[in-house]
């Protein structure tokens, strides 16, 4: 039982680390500000979600798990709002709005 939980926990943690790393790489690789928002979205949703899920398996049915789930709920409620505020502020900036990348075809 403990072994199975440990295995699940490893899987979730490694998956979360993979998505966090992909989000970080995307933050560096993508060409303009607006596309980088999507990379940050990966970090905030599945990266954080899987890491906290992996910790939940270690916490078991205790108050720890409740707190972890609450952290996840807060993250998933606040991150789209922050992303939206960023995108909107960047678009509405009258002086130095970041340029938007368009595919040349």
């Amino acid at each position: 039982m403990t072994l199975a939980l440990d295995l699940l926990s490893w899987l979730a943690l490694l998956g979360g680390l993979f998505f966090l790393a992909v989000g970080g790489i995307g933050l560096l690789r993508l060409p303009d500000f607006y596309t980088r928002l999507h990379a940050a979205g990966i970090t905030d949703t599945l990266g954080a979600g899987l890491i906290l899920l992996g910790l939940c398996f270690q916490g078991g049915w205790t108050q720890i798990t409740i707190k972890l789930i609450l952290i996840l709920v807060f993250l998933w409620f606040t991150s789209p709002t922050a992303t939206h505020a960023l995108a909107r502020a960047a678009l509405a900036d009258p002086e130095n709005s970041p340029p938007m990348f368009h595919k040349k075809d």
Binding site: Y34, L37, H38, G41, I42, T45, L46, W76, F77, S79, P80, T81, T83, H84, A87, R88, L91
Partner: peptide, 14 residues
């Protein structure tokens, strides 16, 4: 709007 933003690949801007 929040669901759209939460799904990576799409962001609501306004």
């Amino acid at each position: 709007a929040n669901s759209i933003t939460l799904t990576p690949g799409t962001v609501t801007t306004d």
